[in-house]
Design a protein around this nucleic acid. Structure first.
Lengths: 149, 149
DNA sequence: GACGTTATTGCGAATCGTATGCAGGTGCAC
DNA sequence: GTGCACCTGCATACGATTCGCAATAACGTC
């Protein structure tokens, strides 16, 4: 591959991201650093296409296949989590485990602290046998306050 | 089209399905009758591919595009509902409104009566602003009892 | 700092699920 | 029975995702 962006270009702004990658047993490469930085900086859940577009906007034209693989690996090692929704999968960084609330209309993803919903979730588990999924979190679909009006 | 299966072949076994179609403003055609019958007979949530395969297994080789359109129309008029999940969309008949519980591992869809979960759902709406979506139902993702072990 | 091993990347192509355009056939109101 | 709007089958296209492979970079070892 060409790897036109030497890691020094990103190193300064990512003091602990490289350590984070290594701690998860991953090599510290430019594409991973940038992807990880973008995910944690956005604070939202983004699709692979959005990651690609934003990286390309920053002059970092990583291949889409690379971004897919990167995000999949991040999910595997627990650095990120995937959220199914209308349209493409969305990814977010896994800092603190939390539940996800997805609007089936606009696709917006909202995080909810696990503690906040523990009571309701317990009741649901009791009723349905449904357990929190990957990363100890539950995913809920419905209409957000904006779309339900 | 060829419509090699005259509707008489299905008519006998679908006394109210044709009425149901008409009541929803749809024409009563072989493909729609068969699809509707299959959905309500299976009692589960099936994907378009499964509908195609099962219809073909019954010697009714309806085109995949037709099945897609049929299911989309059913969803539009409220005869059926779509459930997002891992893999392709799944469809079920809309008899009584209910919530859906989806296993993110195996994709199995489980129905839960709305009344059963009203308390938990109210609490969730309160916390997150999430309202029941299309058909007044909520969609929950996690791991079913089988997959969570 | 040089070197070798191995993981990672870019590129191209394939796959899968879904949607659409069009021409011809069918259901149903009259 | 007839005509017209609606449906269907076929072909094709599209977006999202995955895969194979050769080139290349990261990192441990010397």
């Amino acid at each position: 591959m060409t790897m036109t962006q030497p890691s020094a270009q990103h190193g300064a702004a990512t003091p602990d991201h490289s350590a984070l990658l290594r701690r998860h047993g991953l090599r510290c490469t430019a594409s991973r650093l940038c992807t990880l930085r973008l995910l944690s900086a956005s604070g939202q859940h983004v699709s692979t296409a959005e990651v690609c577009a934003q990286l390309q906007g920053m002059g970092l034209p990583f291949d889409q296949a690379t971004v897919y693989r990167t995000l999949e690996i991040f999910t595997e090692v627990g650095l990120a989590h995937a959220v199914l929704g209308p349209g493409p999968k969305r990814y977010g960084v896994s800092s603190v485990p939390h539940h996800h609330v997805v609007c089936e209309e606009c696709g917006r993803v909202q995080d909810v602290a696990i503690a906040q919903m523990s009571e309701a979730v317990e009741r649901i588990t009791e009723l349905t046998g449904l357990h929190a999924g990957a990363g100890g979190s539950l995913l809920l679909y419905g209409r957000c306050s904006r779309c339900s009006t």
